[in-house]
Amino acid sequence: MNFLVTLINGLSLGGIYAMIALGYTMVYGIAKMLNFAHGDVLMVGGYVMFVFLAINAHPLLALLVAVIFCTLFGIGIEYVAYRPLRGASPLAVLITAIGVSYLLQSLAQIIFGSETRYVTVAELGLVKIGSLSLSVATLVTLGVCLAVMLVLHLFVRYSRIGRAMVAVSEDRGAASLMGISVNFIISLTFAIGFALAALASFFYLMKTPIITPTLGSMPGIKAFTAAVIGGIGSIPGAMLGGLLLGLVECFSNAVPALAPYTDAIEFALLIVILLGKPTGFLGKIRREKV
C-alpha cells in the first residue's frame, strides 16, 4: 500500500519536473541554448501568486495572472538579453543566462526580502480510494501534468506553428528560407516554456508551500537533469526523464537510510545513464562528420 502511495507521489513530483524540463528542452532544441534562468521563473511565478493570494484573489485567478506574467516576462527576457547574442558563442549565451538568473534572484530579494514566505495556494484535503488515502493535490497535479504534456505533444506534432518549431530546431537557416519567422518561433518557445514553468510553480507550491528567492535553483537543476536524461531537445524525452527523476526521488526519500543522499543518487543516476546512452534516452545521435 505504501508502495502505491509513493508511486503516485513520485509520478506527481515527476510531472512537475517534467513541466519545467519541457521548457528547458524546447528552448534548447529551438534556440540552441541552455537557459539557466529557467528554474528562476518558478520563483517569479511563485511570488506573483503570493502577491495575488495576499490580496485574497481566487487561487485560479492568481495562477492565471502568474502564467500570463511569466509568458510576457519570457518574451521580454529573450528580447533584451538573449536576442542580441543570437549567433554569438554558446558559452557567452550560457553566461548571460546565468547573469539573468542572478538578476532575477537578487531582484526578488530586493522586492520581497530574503526571508521565507509561506503561501497556501489551495487546500484540497485527502481522498480515500479503497484503503489508500491520497492527497487530492497529488492527483490533480498528476492529471494536469499528463494533460499538459499530451496537449503540448499534439501541438508540436500537428499544428502549423508546432511544425514550424520542429523545422527551426532541425535547421534554422533552411526554416527561415521556407518563410518561417525564426525570431517569432524562438519568442514563442520562450513564452511556452515560461508559461509551463509558472504552471509548474503552482503545483510545486501546492506540494511545498514555501517561497524564497532561491526557490527555483534546485528544481531548476533537477529539471535540467531530467531533460538531459531524456535526451535534451526531445519533448517525450523530457517527460520520461522528469517522471523517472520524480520516482527516484520519492522512492529514495521513502527509505530512511537513503533519504539524506537523495540528491546524490539522482545525479549519480544521470551519470550512469549518460555513460550507457551518451545522448540520453531519446536524444538524437549526431554523427560527427569531417
Binding site: 539573468v100 538578476l103 537578487s106
Partner: peptide
Amino acid sequence: LVYALILI
C-alpha cells in the same frame, strides 16, 4: 544586482 548587471 550590481554583479548580475555587470555580467550581462
